[in-house]
Amino acid sequence: MSQNNHHDKEEKKMYNKGEVITGLVLFAVIFAFPFWYNMGKAAPVPEPVLTEQAKAAKECIKPKALMKTDHMQILNDWRNSVARDRNRIYVNSSNKEFDMSLSNNCLDCHSNKAEFCDKCHTYASVSPYCWDCHIDKPKEK
């Protein structure tokens, strides 16, 4: 009983106060290292480069802003339509028809995959596996 009381009193005391605090501070600094080290050094958002052909076409299948945000969804719908139903023609809102083919159509205009696709994908740290099968076709110069 008396021993227990003795213990209770001791537990309120902090041992090695100096080391513990220093350790905690060090930990916090090291843990936050990537944040403060990179502060103010954010990589600029890349702009995808358009080929001459893409520039001349002026318009993609949908408005540019939508293509930026939704191209992955569109490609997903295209893939389902072609691979499952073999409906290969896409009709956009202005009744223009497009062959739903990543390699044979999209990349025909955007024949600069490195400058057009990869740039942003690398920046956003996404690695779509399209290219494992679909063929990138840089135009012969």
Partner: peptide, 10 residues
């Protein structure tokens, strides 16, 4: 997404 049909034709 899977069920959505886009405006497509053969």
């Amino acid at each position: 997404m899977l069920n959505k049909k886009i405006n497509a034709a053969p």
